[in-house]
Design a protein around this nucleic acid. Structure first.
Lengths: 244, 244
DNA sequence: ATAAATAGTGGCTTAAAGCCACTAATGTGT
DNA sequence: ACACATTAGTGGCTTTAAGCCACTATTTAT
């Protein structure tokens, strides 16, 4: 290993291909709620390796197209769902010599939340090779690579965050009622919540804005709210506990 | 792009060098407490790029040596400090086209905590090119690459976790007093804590074991405790608040 | 008119933190 | 010997935010 006088000199002679690098991918768990159930988007792999197996959407970082890591995530998300402004959060990176048969690889895992009203955009994506799957049913899919573990990490992180942030607001349409918001929390947590405690918590947090409008239905009309800030979460100082 | 009959067939023809991959590194913020101050280990870069600048310890994944990503982290930690069983936690991955002049790169950031009593092992590492730096003083170092941002993420994650877990226990020697433990929390948080609330919290959590021994000093002797489980954190359901 | 359903609140209980003053046990200085 | 400084440890009240659950409110359906 020789030394160079200046960094320019060093860089001029630097060949990035001289050291083999691990394969680097981004994989994501894209969550939404359909039919009152938490669902995750899975794709059937069209090519080797793991051809024919279901997997999380994802793929290689494209060094030409993607300026940053999250560009890769947004690009993949747009390709699969047509949605381009979801809630997106990096979860963790998994890397080892054996998770991909092609060699040493690492994948940066993200989770995304897509609001119900954005979903229409990709409704016709329900082809044979891409599908929303209820989380309660993913165990019946033998996921490719280590995607079961990756999905589990994404799911756990998401659930944990629902307990101490306003994360579920990101799954709501522009205007919604407190009842609908509570239901969303409950679906993500897979656990019922206490109505009074929930409403007090939201109101104390001061993150919602009364639209002045009402949502009428088959019972008493409910006030419609809108999130004061989208994309940003409120952090509570206690976990949401729920009835025992 | 051609198709193959079987995965074996595909893999036989697969050349990992056909697609250039981003450079993949691991960088870490190794924290300890020296002189009642939170300190982080920095190394002065011996070679280009960023030669002569201070940086977080880290380096390329060695696909031969390292079976997993955390192997890389443990290897780097051992190389720099001699310590081989610290508390280690992955924080986040940073990747983009411009953070390293050699090209598209990503780094997986970890933070590590090293207990005071393990520190003796690397005391003579205080050479010119590797040094513990008080966190209050890192601003005076112009860190290489995007390491200022990486360090900030590590520091923030660590502080956040001190607020709702028993993380600081990992910085304690085998036996310690409640006063010493509280002081450690306070140094990591950079904020004083209420004695009674702190002790009640620890005692309610049931994570410490009374050794039956006392630590004598220049005042009333204090009970010595030992952690019931090392390496694992207790999660509290509220943040530690501290006096206002 | 009455029932069903969901919205929204009042008001008490509980869990865990804040506050702060008090007692306890040791070494130090005179 | 004895006061004093210093840190350990506790008692007991206040505060905050949650749990609990029954009560009222407003709509549509029958």
């Amino acid at each position: 290993m020789s030394t160079y006088k200046t960094e320019e000199d060093y860089l001029k002679h630097y060949d990035p291909r001289q050291y083999e690098q691990p394969l680097a991918t981004v994989d994501m768990a894209i969550f939404t709620i359909i039919d009152q159930q938490l669902q995750v988007l899975l794709v059937k792999r069209a090519m080797h390796p793991a051809q024919g197996k279901w997997a999380l959407p994802g793929g290689f970082i494209d060094m030409k197209q993607d300026k940053t890591l999250s560009d890769t995530a947004y690009r993949k998300l747009k390709e699969k769902t047509g949605v381009d402004s979801p809630y997106l959060e990096q979860v963790a990176t998994f890397g080892d010599a054996s998770r991909d048969p092609r060699g040493w690889s690492l994948t940066v895992a993200y989770f995304a939340l897509i609001a119900g009203d954005q979903l229409a955009l990709c409704a016709d994506n329900r082809s044979e090779d891409i599908s929303w799957v209820p989380l309660s049913n993913v165990d019946n899919f033998k996921l490719a690579f280590d995607h079961a573990r990756v999905l589990q990490a994404c799911h756990e992180r998401m659930k944990a965050k629902v307990q101490y942030t306003s994360l579920p607001v990101n799954l709501m349409p522009a205007e919604f009622t407190l009842g609908e918001l509570q239901k969303t929390f409950e679906i993500l947590l897979d656990s019922p919540l206490e109505k009074k405690a929930f409403r007090r918590r939201m109101s104390d947090a001061d993150i919602l804005e009364d639209t002045g409008e009402l949502k009428t239905g088959s019972s008493r009309p409910a006030k419609l709210y809108r999130a004061k800030l989208r994309g940003e979460n409120h952090y509570f100082s206690r976990l949401m506990e729920g009835p025992r």
